[in-house]
Design a protein around this nucleic acid. Structure first.
Lengths: 187, 187
DNA sequence: CATAATCTGGTGCTTAAGCAACAAAACAGA
DNA sequence: TCTGTTTTGTTGCTTAAGCACCAGATTATG
């Protein structure tokens, strides 16, 4: 594993591996994709894969993060103020992300869902933590961390529930959910 | 300049350079394409270009030969017997090749025509020489070489004339030309 | 016409990637 | 369950490709 770097060769092989992987996801399921499949598609030696990624899961993680930040969370890069509106836009982003991913990688989406979940929750936690830190500069970091963790799991669970059970629009669902939650779990 | 080799890196960069070049030919004219243009498109360092090709003309030559042999002259690979039918099929191949090339590389075709001409005539000469050698095993090689040269220029000139001036189909043109020629230049 | 900018072809050194070979793990199938 | 096959990670050595820099040729531009 070599760290990121500006050498043209590294940029190029990274790109090819990722492109090949994404292409494979569109027609095979994640579990049945081998490293050899990926590297053949990328026109790269199998050993070279391990110069860039620990394993298939590491690759998935990096791809997901990249997709997420470049396509979906770009409106959140300048971390928003922490409030209900911010939670809503994060929720919407995740649902969008799930939709586009499940559409592009039908075969693989279920395979990968547990991995995706843990990656995304970690990402969300980081986003919430920063946002909370900005708002509550004097609070103890541990409190912030705990809150960020709980929030990330809540929002993610909402996104999963929406995908599996809801007919509402993401926006409506979120409004409905937040009202319900606040009503039933009175602070 | 390194010779052909089975190393994956060499195969890959060759392919990328050639692909990039062909892509550029479709939108720019040959003369205005720089090595940097080619290597940028190929995601390859400029110096690497010179590991594979002497210059732009060398690249063109290799591309033309490759295209020619892989797409057009494939029916001639098992060298045919030397006769009028063989001349005709070579002629047709060249006209086809010119057509597809000028269609794909409108901007560049005129730019490159002198280069293409010399490459193709050399190729034709080789084809005719082999074919003659097969038919006239006892003749002096110099006689065969001279004949092959003359034939290659003749056929090529016919292809050029057809492209510039004729409304006939390549087949009709060839029949017409061969009859005319034989009539006017009685052996 | 001059001169700045770009392009060419080349060099020396460094580094990513290829290759082959390996043991261990995972899988498949009788 | 045993047994052969495939896949996975890893390693040592070799080589293609990257990079930076060069001088000379071409091409633009005022």
């Amino acid at each position: 594993m070599i760290e990121q770097n500006t050498d043209l060769r590294m940029i190029r092989t990274r790109k090819f591996i990722i492109d090949s992987f994404i292409q494979l996801l569109e027609k095979k399921d994640f579990n049945s994709i081998t490293i050899k499949d990926i590297t053949s598609g990328a026109m790269v030696n199998r050993a070279t894969f391990y110069h860039h990624f620990v394993d298939k899961f590491d690759l998935l993680e990096k791809v997901i993060k990249k997709e997420l930040t470049s396509n979906v969370l770009k409106e959140l890069t300048n971390i928003e103020d922490f409030n209900d509106q911010m939670l809503k836009s994060v929720f919407i982003s995740i649902t969008k992300f799930h939709m586009s991913l499940s559409e592009r990688c039908q075969r693989s989406f279920d395979d990968m869902s547990v991995n995706i979940e843990s990656i995304l929750k970690k990402e969300l936690e980081g986003i919430f933590f920063q946002s909370l830190q900005k708002k509550y500069q004097d609070e103890d970091n541990e409190e912030l961390r705990i809150t960020a963790t709980l929030l990330s799991w809540m929002i993610y669970s909402a996104a999963v529930d929406w995908r599996l059970h809801s007919e509402k629009s993401p926006e409506d669902y979120f409004e409905y959910a937040i009202v319900s939650f606040k009503k039933l779990v009175k602070n």
